[in-house]
Design a protein around this nucleic acid. Structure first.
Lengths: 228, 228
DNA sequence: CGCCGCCTTGACTCCCTTCAATGCGAGTGG
DNA sequence: CCACTCGCATTGAAGGGAGTCAAGGCGGCG
């Protein structure tokens, strides 16, 4: 729903990622469905499976004892998640929209990957790119102002949705705040401010339209990741 | 110097990591030395090599146009860095102390890794653990107060140095600040406050002593990574 | 000794948080 | 069809934690 454009990918064409050859992975994977808001796994759970989103949107996050949350990442169709070097889950995962996902038994999965040079290469690339994203977020959270963070976030969503000017989001304001290291109020106020300045339009709370892309680039501190 | 305890590892015993078997990697790697403060590579450089620290301490960071910096990670003896899925460096790397490092040609390195199931497994684990660390830092930077961040930082250093009560650091206050998403002044004030409260002692600016480890655990918000 | 880089401390400011209402759309039942 | 409710989003007012600006302090080295 949030990503209608991507739904065209048939379930059979999916493997690890939409971009990956559909060469079969000799792993019997079960398919499970989760409703919006349902928990997929909880931190410190025994990590018997890792998951691939067939459809829907999900998030991984951590929680401190007093309830402070940090959303590590959002996942879309094709994304793989729930893998760690330990045998325990390091995050809690939750479905944001209704989700369908493929569950790979962890050990078999890891062995299969390691045994194939192609899969290894692919998986290494995936991990490196994920690490890169995590670090981009570190500079965003650690060194950017509220406006810069929100704008960076919107620009990333824009890219995820093939650069379309219309952006549909599945996550709530609270999710965004917990992802950007802000409060829900600050996210709201910042969005309102961007709307006032005519940089974006907001037909509804979860639908944005980029009006002045050039100014948005300026607002990121001209270095979404760094110098170019 | 900062890590005398680790220097016992002979250069020959090193491979990827101190923990790794010394099985030879069929890659001719050159060895280079850098003085403290020297730049190893700059963001957007052509990434022809990846590096492994034989001795010394180094850091990777990003810079925004106006000079704001975020230190992504610090590296010690044995650590591998400078690898990305792109052909360009994503960070700038700099020697903190004098460093000796082994330089692996990127393409050969990647091919060799992918070709060996054992190396693949090892490298995957390294990447996953690095991703985990990056995410721990996200919650630290995004959701913790100054005291919690500094205490988390000290506790991590303690672990890196085998749990010793005496902690020697190689990095400056500015490096710490840029790592924790704080200013140098806040880092100083926080350390002074911890000293006043008798939680740590600070014989010199780069030497700490953990006095009340229990209270330090409390001060992290009781969830360095999350719930247990 | 005197310079220089790094660290520390103080006073003031400000951005974001906190606390508290209010708005708004969707679903439900009368 | 409307009243009611519930969750999410928005807005306002006030306060605080960390940033900014500025002035020393301290140790190493020529």
């Amino acid at each position: 729903m949030a990503h209608a454009a991507k739904q065209e990918t048939s379930e059979d064409a999916l493997f690890f990622n939409v971009k990956t050859p559909a060469a079969g992975l000799p792993i019997c994977a079960s398919v499970r469905r989760f409703k919006a808001g349902e928990t997929i796994y909880v931190e410190s759970d025994d990590a018997r499976y890792c998951y691939q989103l067939i459809s829907g949107v999900a998030k991984e996050f951590n929680t401190l004892e007093d309830g402070r949350r940090q959303v590590a990442d959002f996942y879309n169709t094709g994304d793989l998640f729930g893998l760690s070097e330990t045998r325990a889950q390091l995050h809690t995962a939750e479905a944001i929209t209704d989700c369908t996902l493929r569950c790979y038994p962890r050990d078999t999965f890891m062995q299969t990957i390691a045994a194939s040079p192609e899969l290894s290469k692919f998986f290494l690339d995936t991990l490196m790119s994920r690490l890169h994203r995590a670090r981009e977020r570190m500079i965003m959270i650690g060194r950017m102002t509220a406006i810069e963070r929100v704008v960076s976030f919107l620009l990333r969503l824009k890219e995820d949705q093939n650069g379309a000017r219309e952006i549909t989001i599945a996550m709530s304001r609270q999710d965004i705040a917990d992802h950007l290291g802000l409060t829900i109020e600050t996210v709201c106020r910042t969005l309102t401010e961007l709307k006032k300045q005519g940089v974006i339009a907001m037909p509804s709370a979860r639908l944005f339209s980029i009006i002045d892309a050039a100014q948005m680039d300026d607002l990121t501190g001209s270095g979404d990741a760094a110098i170019h």
